[in-house]
Structures are given as structure tokens and as C-alpha cells.
């Protein structure tokens, strides 16, 4: 690792000031991505601002039809939370499949979505559930939040504070893990709400995206056979060592059907 300054602010204000005052600062949440990246000399921030202990960023609560999760809530806490399990079991299930138990005890929701790894799990949930990301300066719909590979709508110095999820009627997440890294080779989150069905795909493209033809078909008939005959184009999908675009296109269909079945 290159040298850097380390800060552990207790408040959002303090964090923002540290960020503004530093040359090339980097927020750190659970550190499960940035630490390995720095270890491999792939990043050299001047300052690491550890926001993992800011009290305002913690906590899980349910208010009516809305589940709210603080940005620094760890994956393990989401997976183990009764509130989450009762309100959106698919989200709890998703969290329980991120990384491994040790990673889940450090990694956070906010860190994951701010990094926007194209193979991360959470972006699929946020987009499919129509979640809202609250930052230190505004609220952003999940769809607008994830902009491109490793890119989000966050401005310099802007932090994710919390995410709110409308509780869906039905939802499920199906993931096909990469056999080496256990990131999603492809993951599909399907959610049905009063406003209709949303299908969000992660791992297959440069950034999470919605599969609108699936959504239309499932709006009419929320059952796996509804997706028969819809062919997913491989154009624009990722092709890499682990899976070709054609294979990912196939996984999108297979996983979407399984998610619909799983959602019941």
C-alpha cells in the first residue's frame, strides 16, 4: 500500500470537512474493496476517511411500507435483521450471498453501492425495488444513482446516508456466482409492487440495468412461462474470462424465471 493519512470522523460534517481539505481523499466504508485495491497498488488516495463509525449512517428501520437501511449497515446485519427478513426477505437473502461471512461482517450497503462494481449484488435490488438513495445533499432514485461501470451520480464529497426501499408484494434475487470471486457472474432481482414488475440485472452489463421486455411480460402474467419466447440479446453484455455475452444472456432468462418462481 502507498502511504496515506487516516481519519475517523464521528459526524458527517466532520467527514465532509476532512474531504474538502484533502488533496485526493477517498471515503472508506467497510473497506472490503478499497483495502484490497490499495494493497495491490491500484489506488493511491492521499487521505482515507473512514466513515464506518458515523452514528447517523447506522441502523435498520421499518415505517409502514418503507424499509430504511443506514449506509454503513453491514451486509451481515442486513442478512440477519428480523425487520428486513419480515419486510423484504429477498433483500435479506441477497445480503446473505454477498462475499462470505467475514466479508459480510465488514462490507456495507453504502460502500457497495457507492463503488458500483458491475458484478455487485445490491445495485440489482435497489433498481428492482425502486429504492431511493439519500445522500448528504439530496435524494436520488436508484435508477439515476447507478450511472456507469464504477460510476454513480455521487458528486465529489457527497456521501450516501441511507437507502429506503418500498416494501414489494413479492420479490426474489437469483445469483449465479463467479466460481473464483463469488461476485455475480449474473444476478437478477425481480420485484412486483403495486406499480408493476421490475426486473433488474447485475453482473451482465457495464452497470445494472432493467430488463423491460421481461417486466412487460411479467406485468401481465407473473409466472416463469411468461418469459418463454422472449430472447435476450447478447449485444452489449459483458464478455470475459468467466462468461461470454451469449452465456450471460442465457443466464438472465434462466435466473429471471427462477426468481419469479422463488418469489411465488
Amino acid at each position: 500500500m502507498y502511504e496515506f493519512e487516516y481519519h475517523q470522523p464521528k459526524t458527517l460534517e466532520e467527514a465532509a470537512k476532512l474531504f474538502a481539505d484533502a488533496d485526493d481523499p477517498q471515503f472508506m466504508a467497510g473497506g472490503q474493496t478499497i483495502i484490497p485495491v490499495m494493497k495491490q497498488h491500484l489506488a493511491m488516495p492521499s487521505d482515507i476517511i473512514d466513515i464506518g463509525r458515523i452514528a447517523d449512517l447506522q441502523g435498520i428501520s421499518v415505517d409502514g411500507d418503507t424499509l430504511t437501511i443506514g449506509a454503513m449497515t453491514r451486509h451481515g446485519d442486513v442478512a440477519g435483521s428480523d425487520e428486513v427478513r419480515k419486510s423484504i426477505p429477498a433483500l435479506s437473502d441477497l445480503a446473505s450471498h454477498i462475499g462470505d461471512p467475514a466479508v459480510r461482517n465488514r462490507g456495507t450497503l453504502g460502500g457497495s453501492i457507492a463503488n458500483n462494481d458491475p458484478a455487485a449484488d445490491y445495485p440489482a435490488a435497489l433498481v428492482a425495488l425502486g429504492a431511493t438513495v439519500y445522500t448528504t445533499s439530496r435524494e436520488i432514485s436508484a435508477e439515476d444513482f447507478f450511472t456507469a461501470m464504477f460510476e454513480t451520480a455521487l458528486e465529489d464529497g457527497e456521501m450516501v446516508v441511507k437507502v429506503t426501499f418500498p416494501v414489494p408484494e413479492k420479490a426474489a434475487y437469483e445469483k449465479f456466482p463467479n466460481p473464483a470471486s463469488r461476485y455475480a457472474t449474473t444476478g437478477v432481482f425481480v420485484a412486483r409492487t403495486g406499480d408493476g414488475v421490475r426486473v433488474a440485472v447485475t453482473g451482465a452489463g457495464a452497470c445494472v440495468f432493467r430488463q423491460s421486455d421481461f417486466e412487460k411480460a411479467l406485468d401481465t402474467d407473473f409466472s416463469p412461462p411468461a418469459l418463454d419466447g422472449i430472447s435476450v440479446s447478447a449485444d452489449g453484455l459483458n464478455s470475459d474470462l468467466h462468461a461470454s455475452a451469449e452465456y450471460r444472456a442465457n443466464l438472465i432468462t434462466v435466473l429471471a424465471k427462477r426468481a419469479v418462481k422463488h418469489a411465488g
Binding site: 463467479n178 466460481p179 473464483a180 470471486s181 474470462l241 468467466h242
Partner: peptide
């Protein structure tokens, strides 16, 4: 273990890419 055919670069250079 996979090397890129053209460049000869090692493609499976970490446990993120080499599955055990």
C-alpha cells in the same frame, strides 16, 4: 491457467480469476 493468446499476458493472475 490462461494466458492471453496475443499478448501472452497471464489472465488468471489472482484468486479472483483462478477458481479453487
Amino acid at each position: 491457467i490462461i494466458y492471453d493468446e496475443d499478448s501472452g499476458q497471464l489472465v488468471t493472475g489472482s484468486l479472483m480469476d483462478y477458481a479453487l
